[in-house]
Design a binder for these strands. Structure first.
Length: 220
DNA sequence: TGCCAGGCCGGGT
DNA sequence: ACCCGGCATGGC
């Protein structure tokens, strides 16, 4: 069966997802620091595990910049144990805090006063912060207009023919930046909707499923 | 039970 | 410039 190019825009897809799941208005987390820590903790890790780790940090009342900066890497690793990769993530959190303390005197506000592109460069220089983590920090903690790409984005939109299977992070991001108005609220909800769809329906070994709101059906 | 999860790094070609 | 193993817990 011959297939023609999907004429629907990325906005059309957004509207489908929004109709199905509503407004997510992310990130799940109370403070900007919690969002940043969560962004590191959720690297290749299910969110339910991250929640346990964050709960531990709150229970011990260390989820603030000063305490997190002072406790040992060892103790931090113990607290975030449920999130997996706890040793490396403890170091990565410490790396971020060292960056924040050194360059911005421990002020997240000061950090976000930096021009977006410059701040993104600096975040990427932190060992343990890659493109998705940096962009999540910028968008969700900083409310900056940066589109976040993740494994779900790549999987879902390559399956539906919007991005190449082998496209890298920057290429996928460029497609969304080109296809969407530069709007923080839209970027926020779009990525959140993608994750929601990914978590619920779009598993690795299941190419397309009938419940997928993006799926094109006969008769449109 | 084995596979997977909202990546990223470092060492090897 | 790629490619790949390592990192680790908890849920289904």
């Amino acid at each position: 069966m011959k297939r023609t190019k999907d004429p629907r825009t990325l906005i059309d897809i957004y509207n489908l997802l929004h109709a199905r799941f509503g407004s997510m208005q992310w990130w799940p987390g109370d403070t900007r620091l919690e969002i940043i820590i969560g962004a590191i903790l959720t690297q290749n890790t299910s969110w339910s595990n991250v929640e346990k780790a964050v709960a531990n940090l709150k229970k011990d009342e260390v989820l603030n910049i000063k305490k997190l900066s002072r406790i040992s890497e060892k103790r931090l690793a113990r607290l975030i144990r449920p999130a997996g990769y706890f040793n490396i993530k403890s170091r990565r959190i410490k790396n971020f805090l060292a960056f924040l303390n050194t360059r911005y005197d421990g002020s997240i506000e000061a950090m976000f006063r930096t021009k977006i592109d410059k701040l993104r460069e600096r975040l990427l220089d932190i060992n343990g912060v890659g493109p998705e983590t940096a962009d999540s920090i910028l968008l969700y903690a900083g409310k900056k207009p940066v589109f976040v790409v993740d494994a779900y984005t790549k999987r879902i939109f390559s399956r539906h023919g919007y991005v190449d299977e082998d496209a890298d992070y920057a290429a996928i991001q460029a497609i969304f930046l080109r296809g969407l108005p530069r709007d923080v609220g839209l970027y926020n909800n779009y990525h959140a909707l993608i994750v929601e769809l990914g978590k619920r329906l779009c598993r690795p070994m299941r190419p397309l499923c009938n419940e997928c709101p993006i799926r094109r059906r006969k008769n449109g």
